[in-house]
């Protein structure tokens, strides 16, 4: 028994040593940032599990903010997946007035919490800066019978003939699909998958006709010529491999415009000084090279910065738009 204990103890010591090496990372003390500064580690809540887009977003913000000394106290990432954002929203909401809690806010979850009638919706929290747009586009496989968007839309006029896949329900992919159906006046059907990997798999396997996803999801396949981009849902064409895909506006369709939006949020009743502090920190983060080179670039994101006040206005408008169309389509009752 004693020997067993000794073995465990020594293993732990080794583990601790390895850990010590791994968790290194000295942080410089921050410069005074006006009247507010976090007094302890800031909890940075991520409403999805480790490894996803939101998680990466939070981790890189934390890393840059601390490394560059923008904040005197580290941002600690905490994953709280569940309820399509519902659990995380509820948790952050319960921390009213707490100035040391942040949350990643993704417009997809803003929508899903409304659609799912979660007890806490984003308007009950404090909006903080918007940091990036992730474009959405619709693609098909190279040997599809629809080689451009017009052909697809033409076929989609026949109800249920064209199957378009997207990830999740009540989310940005779904919204993009409904916008297309409404304003291009077609009747395609939506097939819902659990993630962009599954959607693309189904597309390449010939089970669906088109797919809605983000550029980073399909860059590899587009480069290899297996997938062709048909059209983009953003305001302007996306560069690089996706240059040839027109925007819906170019083709004459008004209103088919939506981006996935990445932002930050905080608990209700955060102090004005705290909000100003985070506005500053995040602005500085988005201006660093590391942000651009290690996050925006490889993930094909469009860098954007809106202060918390601007973000609030932006989201309030967006939510109205989303609610309208989802109610029309019956997703919201």
């Amino acid at each position: 028994m004693k020997k067993f204990v000794k073995i465990i103890a020594s293993t732990l010591l080794v583990g601790a040593l390895l850990t010590g090496c791994a968790s290194g990372g000295a942080g410089k003390t921050g410069e005074g940032n006006g009247s507010f500064e976090p007094k302890r580690e800031v909890e940075f809540v991520v409403p999805s599990s480790a490894g996803g887009g939101s998680d990466l977003n939070a981790r890189i913000i934390s890393e840059i903010a601390f490394k560059e000394g923008f904040t005197p106290k580290n941002f600690m990432v905490t994953n709280m997946p569940g309820g399509s954002g519902g659990v995380a929203f509820a948790d952050v909401y319960s921390k009213k007035g707490n100035n040391e809690t942040l949350m990643i806010l993704h417009n997809g979850q803003i929508m899903s919490t409304i659609v799912n009638e979660s007890p806490v919706t984003s308007d009950m929290l404090t909006y903080l800066p918007v940091v990036a747009f992730d474009n959405l586009l619709i693609v098909t496989r190279a040997d599809s019978e629809y080689q451009d968007i017009e052909a697809l839309l033409e076929a989609a006029k026949t109800p249920d003939k064209v199957k378009v896949g997207g990830s999740q329900r009540g989310n940005t992919d779904h919204l993009a699909f409904e916008l297309m159906n409404k304003y291009a006046e077609v009747e395609a059907s939506y097939v819902q998958f659990d993630g962009s990997g599954d959607v693309l798999g189904a597309l390449l396997g010939g089970h669906i006709d088109a797919a809605i996803c983000n550029p980073s999801d399909t860059l590899g396949q587009v480069q290899a010529g297996e997938v062709i981009p048909l059209a983009v849902f953003s305001q302007e064409r996306i560069g690089k491999e996706f240059e040839d895909a027109p925007t819906f506006a170019e083709l004459g369709y008004e209103g088919i415009e939506i981006d996935a939006v990445r932002a930050i949020a905080g608990p209700p009743e955060m102090s004005a000084e705290a909000i100003a502090f985070y506005d500053e920190v995040i602005r500085k983060v988005t201006e660093t090279d590391q942000w651009k080179n290690e996050y925006l670039e490889p993930n094909n994101l469009e860098g954007v910065y809106m202060t918390s006040a601007e973000a609030k206005e932006f989201f309030e408008k967006e939510i109205e738009k989303y609610k309208e169309i989802f109610t029309e389509v019956g997703v919201i009752k």
Partner: peptide, 10 residues
């Protein structure tokens, strides 16, 4: 993707 490698057929 972070390391600039694009998984896919290529």
């Amino acid at each position: 993707m972070m390391w600039g490698l694009q998984p896919g057929p290529l």
